[in-house]
């Protein structure tokens, strides 16, 4: 069997986009100058067929990041071993530069709920998540990144902040963190705290990747704004501003544009990635000016 990995695995510290089947053709025709692609692991867990053929072709030309959406790390129940095995196989086949999953749960009583449900920030949940992350990293034989969630509710029993929870998990398991700046803005708005304070307190030295995506607006029970992590539109202006602030602190990081619903044309998606690259360049210039 030939290995598809002709391009280095390492994800460069520049912009990439989430790969969608609708964009296979324009990408193959144009071979755009983009840093890397990220795929949802679950979409490539079939035995064969066009998804693998396209992904192999793209992997030959670009570094790839594997992003799981169905592992349910925050579930009380044990991880699904079959699913772990499928992840391991994908990881071996495509040699992604990064592998990430969410601080969330989506399974219960053998059912899969296809959404990222919120985790209470308790000692018990911390222990459970840490055990699950250990198991993932052991099975895959690599470090994983854990992504901060968008949330709409909080739990009475939470005994620590989200940042404390993520930091402890990262310290206990050695996992890295994926910082989704849109998720920070969504959660901060929904729970009434400052996204700047959150970002400034985030353990930035543990971050291996940034996510940017679009959100929708709704209202909560008291009529206050409630933002929904919809990934169905362009990145909002305040999120770009927070992004610039974040990389001002962290330095260059691989930055993904997530757009999963109401898909744009390839050109429009590519333009979002170029906007992120422009901010990365600007930040480099500012840092070199300060250093001089």
């Amino acid at each position: 069997m030939d290995t598809p990995a002709k391009t280095s695995s390492a994800i460069p510290p520049r912009a990439g986009v989430g790969l969608k089947a609708a964009h296979y053709s324009p990408i193959q025709e144009q071979r755009p100058d983009i840093g890397w692609f990220e795929v949802h692991a679950e979409n490539y867990m079939g035995a064969g067929g066009p998804p693998h053929r396209y992904l192999e072709a793209i992997r030959r030309d670009y570094p790839l990041s594997l992003h799981g959406v169905g592992l349910s790390i925050g579930a009380d129940k044990p991880l699904d071993r079959d699913h772990l095995t499928r992840l391991k196989r994908l990881n071996e086949r495509y040699q992604p530069g990064l592998f990430s999953e969410h601080l969330a749960w989506s399974t219960h009583d053998d059912f899969f709920f296809n959404d990222l449900l919120p985790v209470p920030y308790t000692q018990e949940a911390l222990t459970r998540c840490a055990d699950h992350i250990d198991q993932v990293q052991e099975t895959l034989g690599r470090q994983m990144l854990l992504e901060n969630p968008s949330t709409y509710v909080t739990f009475e029993d939470s005994s620590m902040s989200e940042i404390e929870f993520l930091r402890s998990l990262s310290e206990r398991t050695g996992c890295g963190l994926l910082l989704d700046v849109n998720n920070v803005f969504v959660s901060a708005t929904n729970h009434g705290y400052s996204p700047e304070d959150y970002l400034d307190a985030f353990p930035i030295e543990r971050v291996g990747e940034i996510h940017l995506g679009g959100h929708a607006r709704d209202q909560d029970d008291a009529g206050a704004p409630l933002l929904i992590d919809a990934h169905d539109r362009a990145v909002a202006d305040p999120v770009w501003t927070l992004y610039a602030r974040t990389i001002g602190r962290s330095g260059d990081l691989p930055t993904l544009i997530e757009w999963d619903n109401e898909l744009p044309s390839w050109q429009d998606l590519f333009a979002e990635a170029q906007a992120a690259d422009a901010i990365l360049v600007q930040s480099q210039l500012e840092r070199s000016r300060v250093a001089r």
Binding site: D115, P118, V153, E156, S158, D218, L226, I228
Partner: peptide, 30 residues
């Protein structure tokens, strides 16, 4: 909404919880 959820402004967060209910059903319908 479940009892375990915090109640911002003293209100049961039914609309907030409903986002999850809606996400699950809409994503599966899609």
């Amino acid at each position: 909404a479940p009892e375990s959820l915090a109640t911002p402004g003293g209100m049961r967060p039914n609309r907030r919880f409903n986002v999850y209910r809606n996400n699950v059903v809409v994503s599966l319908i899609e």
